[in-house]
Write a protein that binds this DNA or RNA. Structure first.
Lengths: 125, 125
DNA sequence: ATGGGTGCAAATTGTTTGCATTTTA
DNA sequence: TAAAATGCAAACAATTTGCACCCAT
């Protein structure tokens, strides 16, 4: 496999159904194992390509850099650890949120982010 | 009143109980009326001071710059218009969000953001 | 003159992009 | 050898900060 393909596959391979949302830097670090020396520019370009292909989606957490995760996981939300900064996927969603908007407003989507300590940071070994 | 005081008061005066969250740029533009020529640096420094005094709080919306609003409004969330980009305060909050986190995780706060069209953008004159 | 506050510009971080080079077909 | 992808560095936007300067006390 050639270099270009290896880089792209290394990045693409990071997105799994079980994986948590990854930031560009995390992607670069993890991809470095299979494709040493990937530049951040390539990471961003590959992310953009995969996003346009509909394979991954951008996850925006309040006050932090964008993350990316595998597309097609269905409606869900995220948890961000205040200690290690990692983002995790959470399931379940209270309904009826659109009703909270003021009269005349049209709600088409929503984001819920939980903050706290992840299992690892909450139960230090 | 001297220039410094006028600038600070112009900025401080932008934060009202009814006001929506403002970004540093919006703050600079609005403050310019009462205090012409305020630099962004001063806006940021004043924001920081007011935040440390506990008069205003930072509002972080997914994927957008930070906003600031008057402190002490009680628990509430926000709506962001996809058309004009403005942020609005919304009231009400579904409970039990902490239960959505995985086992072992400790939730200490949460953020909910609704996206869509504000009244003005939804009902163009 | 002395300290507090200001504007400008430089520094930071996250992200994008131009361009020359490398790689692939 | 021409097209495609890469790395580096420059360019941007948001935010912070160093520094010289200005104003009120």
């Amino acid at each position: 496999m050639d270099r270009s393909t290896r880089q792209r596959e290394a990045i693409r391979g990071l997105f799994t159904p079980e994986g948590r949302p990854l930031s560009p830097k995390e992607i670069q670090e993890k991809a470095d194992t299979d494709a040493p020396g990937v530049s951040l520019a390539t990471v961003y370009r590959t992310i953009k390509a995969l996003e346009e292909l509909g394979e991954i989606v951008k996850v925006e957490l309040p006050g932090d850099a964008a993350r990316y995760e595998l597309a097609g996981k269905g409606h869900h939300h995220h948890f961000q650890c205040r200690s290690c900064g990692k983002a995790f996927e959470i399931h379940g969603c209270p309904g009826g949120l659109a009703a909270l908007a003021p009269d005349g407003f049209k709600v088409d989507s929503h984001e819920i982010t939980l903050f706290g300590l992840c299992a690892k940071c909450n139960h230090p070994a």
